[in-house]
Simulated assay, not measured.
Amino acid sequence: MKGGMNSLVRQAQKMQSRITKVQEEIGNKTIEASTGGGMVTAVVNGKQELLQIKINPDVVDPSDVEVLEEMVLGAVNQAMEMAGEMMNSEIEKITGGLNIPGLF
């Protein structure tokens, strides 16, 4: 029984090591999401950190700032969601869909 537990612990440690490596690799990737037909683009990294906002000057209308705000918010939220999905997908490949509390 003791040998089986040691084996399980070693497997969990290997899995944690692989997850950490994947998290680092994904953290260096960038994800872009656009709204308004490309008028506003948000760029985030795999750590879900906002890196850049690109705004086409044609969308800037001082009399209607709300539309621009909504497009920025939409692009950022979409990019963040995509980054989270990418991280979850890669981790699921390692864990086989297991949800092990404290592992990642």
Rank of each mutant, 00 (worst) to 15 (best):
2 K>H: 13
2 K>L: 14
3 G>C: 13
3 G>H: 11
4 G>L: 15
4 G>P: 02
4 G>I: 13
4 G>F: 11
4 G>S: 01
5 M>N: 08
5 M>R: 06
6 N>C: 12
6 N>T: 10
7 S>T: 11
7 S>C: 00
9 V>C: 01
10 R>Y: 06
10 R>L: 13
10 R>A: 11
12 A>W: 06
12 A>Q: 05
14 K>V: 05
15 M>S: 01
15 M>D: 02
16 Q>F: 00
17 S>D: 15
17 S>P: 05
17 S>Q: 08
18 R>N: 12
19 I>L: 14
19 I>K: 03
20 T>Q: 08
21 K>M: 14
22 V>M: 14
22 V>L: 13
23 Q>M: 11
23 Q>F: 04
24 E>K: 08
25 E>Q: 11
25 E>K: 08
25 E>F: 12
27 G>E: 15
28 N>F: 06
30 T>H: 00
30 T>E: 05
30 T>I: 15
31 I>L: 13
32 E>L: 15
32 E>W: 03
32 E>Y: 08
33 A>H: 10
35 T>P: 07
35 T>Y: 06
36 G>K: 07
37 G>Q: 14
37 G>Y: 10
38 G>A: 13
38 G>M: 15
40 V>W: 06
41 T>M: 11
42 A>G: 11
43 V>A: 14
44 V>C: 02
46 G>S: 11
46 G>C: 10
47 K>F: 05
47 K>N: 02
49 E>S: 03
49 E>T: 07
49 E>K: 03
50 L>D: 00
51 L>P: 07
52 Q>G: 05
52 Q>A: 02
53 I>W: 03
53 I>S: 02
53 I>E: 12
54 K>T: 14
56 N>E: 12
57 P>G: 14
58 D>A: 15
58 D>H: 12
59 V>Q: 02
59 V>C: 12
61 D>Q: 11
61 D>W: 09
63 S>T: 07
64 D>Y: 08
65 V>W: 03
65 V>P: 01
66 E>L: 05
67 V>W: 02
71 M>D: 10
72 V>A: 07
72 V>M: 01
73 L>E: 00
73 L>M: 04
73 L>H: 02
74 G>D: 13
75 A>T: 02
75 A>P: 05
75 A>E: 08
76 V>A: 04
76 V>T: 04
77 N>Y: 01
77 N>L: 07
79 A>Y: 09
81 E>T: 12
82 M>C: 08
83 A>Q: 12
83 A>F: 10
84 G>R: 10
85 E>I: 13
86 M>T: 10
89 S>Y: 07
89 S>W: 07
89 S>Q: 09
89 S>N: 12
89 S>H: 12
89 S>K: 01
90 E>G: 09
90 E>P: 15
91 I>C: 08
91 I>Q: 05
92 E>L: 12
92 E>V: 14
93 K>G: 04
93 K>C: 05
93 K>N: 15
93 K>F: 01
94 I>A: 05
95 T>V: 10
97 G>R: 06
100 I>N: 02
100 I>M: 04
100 I>E: 08
102 G>H: 04
102 G>Y: 00
102 G>C: 06
102 G>W: 01
103 L>A: 06
104 F>E: 08
104 F>N: 03
104 F>W: 00
104 F>I: 06
